[in-house]
């Protein structure tokens, strides 16, 4: 698997650290009710197919990226800088 970092270009998957679903960008308010935090931290759509997740270009530029990819074929469909993006539905 190769991921094309918008800043560094196409790089080997080994340069990147995977964090999880892009819902991690939608951090609830600290005083949000427990259900909101449960949803954010634990519950997942977990699709077999297209998904958006959060990767860190650890051995490159150090940017956080939102990667749209297919969990069945491992195709990487698009990559964007996470800066300024909201997670979940967006």
């Amino acid at each position: 698997m190769r991921i094309t970092c918008p800043l560094c270009g196409a790089r080997d998957r080994r340069e990147f650290h995977y964090m999880g679903d892009a819902v991690y960008l939608d951090r609830p308010d600290p005083v949000a009710p427990a259900v909101a935090w449960d949803d954010y931290l634990h519950l997942r759509d977990n699709p077999a197919g297209e998904t958006r997740d959060l990767w860190f270009h650890e051995a490159g530029c150090g940017a956080w990226l939102v990667v749209t990819r297919n969990t069945v074929s491992h195709d990487v469909l698009s990559v964007a800088l996470a800066d300024g993006i909201r997670g979940g539905a967006g």
Binding site: M1, D12, R13, R14, Y18, G20, D21, N46, A48, T51, D53, W55, T71, V72, S73, H74
Partner: peptide
């Protein structure tokens, strides 16, 4: 380490 339903692994 990344979410997957591929049922086959990656080389790294």
């Amino acid at each position: 380490f990344h979410a997957s339903y591929a049922q086959r692994g990656n080389l790294p």
